[in-house]
Nucleic acid binder design. Structure first.
Lengths: 211, 211
DNA sequence: TTATAGCCTACATAATTGTGTAGGTTTTTA
DNA sequence: TAAAAACCTACACAATTATGTAGGCTATAA
């Protein structure tokens, strides 16, 4: 039995969602709140399996509620609801730890399907949001031309700088002299068109993300 | 008419995919290649709307082909195919600019649906990959506690450092003395638990992503 | 009123980074 | 064989960053 909390201020949607939950086997709507100002206490109390959260609510909007919940360390599944396929807002929700999102105007089937999707380890999204997430996610890798010109050693050096190594530490790590390290660094900066370690590090991270 | 190129070495899949394309209105399979070593020339020649690419192929695997294509500046839609729901591999494909991916064992309906999905601006993925993408994507935002302790001014300073400003430049920009700037920097480094500009910059980028 | 927090500024000095110059070795390619 | 690429090392010195210490002002909360 999937325990669900709904945060939503629109009475029509609340009604229809309650009906839907009545008709859906395996799901139980344990509580409905019209705002999320006490979300942390609510979730601690009800221990839901999944939270359905309207993005637009008076007072604290769904995004803020989501942030509060995550900041408090709760990892419950949270599906965001919105009327519009507003990529920016939804995207921000995703960035703040949403488990997925659904359009309010989706058919009841789609809504139930989205919930099961999330429960089963998925991340329900509309195609356009999925694409935006992927596009942003992969974009840094597509500016990697400067990095492709780095020699193996230059790449080694940069990797250590990104990890916070000082020159001295990096030279010890690579078993080369600090003079050699500076030699590589100078060449690398020229290739990357930067003038300082922090610029090189910034550029590297933007382009590698997972370093 | 959607023009499709297939890169795939498995004869069975090629056959079934060709049949599927025969039966599907609006889609035309213009070419099939069993490896992607000449992908750049192939795509330049055929100008496909979408490429279906097997991840595992002898010689250059699909990932490498995808990288070559993106490195050459082509932005065609690319859906990756795999037998297994191998998150790491698919995830890497997504990071390198794939438009989505499909399981080879998907039903013909799902495959066609995935292609339409991508053509219509979506990013077909299985639920588990979607969740991994979202999880990794949102993770940095969940380690933002150190940044929440920064004062407004410290935040200003950090933003400029991230953008490559030197101390002198940042002081001019904020209209403060370099002494003041160093004061803020010292406090900020203590809060962020870093010891150098590049470490602060690295930490900031990992935690803000979109700066 | 006092304490706290945040911002501003300066000085002194040490440490680190950045740049130019020079020389050498090994491997690969034309 | 000569040239190019990559890696190694050193010196000299300039520029920037990092750290400790000190003093002051304003706004806010207790």
């Amino acid at each position: 039995m999937i325990r669900i909390i709904l945060f939503e201020d629109n009475p029509d949607f609340i009604d229809s969602f309650q009906e839907l939950m009545h008709e859906t086997k395996g799901m139980e709507l344990v509580a409905v709140y019209s705002n999320c100002k006490d979300i942390v206490h609510v979730v601690r109390h009800h221990q839901p399996d999944i939270i359905i959260m309207d993005i637009d609510m008076p007072g604290k909007n769904g995004l803020e509620g989501l942030r509060m919940l995550r900041a408090a360390g709760f990892t419950n599944l949270v599906i965001m609801l919105t009327v519009f396929d507003d990529n920016d807002r939804v995207f921000q929700a995703v960035c703040n730890g949403a488990s997925g999102y659904l359009l309010k105007l989706s058919s009841p089937d789609k809504i139930v399907e989205g919930i099961w999707d999330a429960i089963n380890g998925g991340a329900p999204m509309t195609p356009s949001v999925a694409k935006q997430v992927l596009k942003l996610f992969s974009a840094p890798f597509q500016k990697a031309n400067d990095f492709q010109t780095l020699t193996s050693r230059e790449h080694d050096v940069l990797s250590l700088l990104v990890r916070g190594f000082s020159y001295k530490m990096a030279a010890v790590e690579l078993e080369i002299s600090i003079e050699t390290l500076r030699f590589h660094i100078k060449n690398m900066y020229a290739k990357l068109h930067v003038n300082s370690k922090s610029e090189a590090v910034a550029k590297a991270i933007h382009n590698k993300l997972l370093e």
